[in-house]
């Protein structure tokens, strides 16, 4: 159990948005958190890294490798984020400062986390970019010169740069079209196999993750209504809401929802 959330509630002074949620992510697994916009799934993912907006407070426990993250000081969290836990967001454009080159970002992250040698930093950056299927020459480019898919790949490369144990992807494929989204997910799954990090993938569309997730949790209005193995949830949903969520999204009808038993794959 790398991450274990126990009875986590998030709310402002007058409103509870996430209500007593418990959730666990196992070592090295691909866990998907599915819910509509407004269900509180993004806040949940932000609370893990103490990234909540200032007007919201979290209570409960967020155990990461056994220690409660909510009790950590901002300084300790800073050291943890990036190195042990890292994030990818939907807004890939916002992931890079527009007037700094891609390379400058890679350089800065390594510097901040203690890599002193400039050449070592440069080599690591080139390697990281190549590992996500991008040309190392892109390091010299600026964010606006890259396409959406390329930027999201670069964001993944920065997120994995310091080999974190947990990667939290918050709607990381939502802004991409389904083809680029698919390629980004395939990349994430491959990097996961290579590095063995756990992934918590937050999304509104279960179709994005049906190939890759090991387990799914379905969230509705601040509560988790159903959790379980992918096959169990997608092919045999128990909860009314899960069923609704699955029926709403069309898939090409030759296989089970979970992707099991697909022609050519089975």
């Amino acid at each position: 159990m790398i991450l274990s959330i126990e009875e986590l509630s998030i709310g402002s002074r007058d409103r509870t948005i996430v209500d007593g949620v418990s959730l666990a992510v196992r070592e090295g697994e691909f866990m998907a958190l599915v819910g509509q916009s407004g269900s509180g799934k993004s806040l949940l993912s932000q609370a893990i890294g103490q990234l909540l907006p200032p007007n919201l407070r979290a209570s409960g426990k967020v155990l990461f490798e056994g220690a409660d993250l909510l009790a950590r000081s901002p300084r300790e969290m800073r050291a943890l984020r990036g190195k042990r836990i890292s994030y990818i967001f939907q807004d890939y454009q916002g992931a890079f400062t527009p007037f700094r080159s891609i390379g400058a970002h890679f350089d800065e992250y390594q510097k901040v986390h203690g890599e002193k040698s400039r050449t070592a930093r440069r080599d690591t950056a080139a390697e990281a970019l190549e590992s996500v299927g991008l040309d190392a020459a892109l390091l010299r480019r600026y964010p606006f010169q890259l396409s959406g898919g390329q930027l999201q790949r670069a964001a993944i490369a920065t997120a994995l740069l310091l080999s974190p144990r947990l990667l939290i992807a918050d709607e990381a494929t939502t802004a991409l079209d389904s083809v680029s989204a698919h390629r980004v997910l395939e990349l994430l799954a491959r990097k996961q196999r290579e590095t063995g990090c756990a992934i918590l993938f937050v999304t509104h569309d279960w179709r994005h993750v049906r190939r890759y997730a090991n387990r799914l949790s379905v969230m509705q209005e601040g509560r988790i209504v159903e959790s379980g193995g992918k096959h169990r949830i997608l092919d045999h949903p128990q909860h009314e809401y899960t069923r609704k969520l699955i029926e709403a999204a069309p898939i090409l009808g030759r296989s089970l929802r979970s992707g099991l038993g697909e022609e050519g794959q089975a």
Binding site: Q36, S37, H204, K244, P250
Partner: peptide, 8 residues
């Protein structure tokens, strides 16, 4: 749109 609105 999110999935449920998409279907609708």
């Amino acid at each position: 749109l999110d999935v449920i609105s998409q279907g609708a």
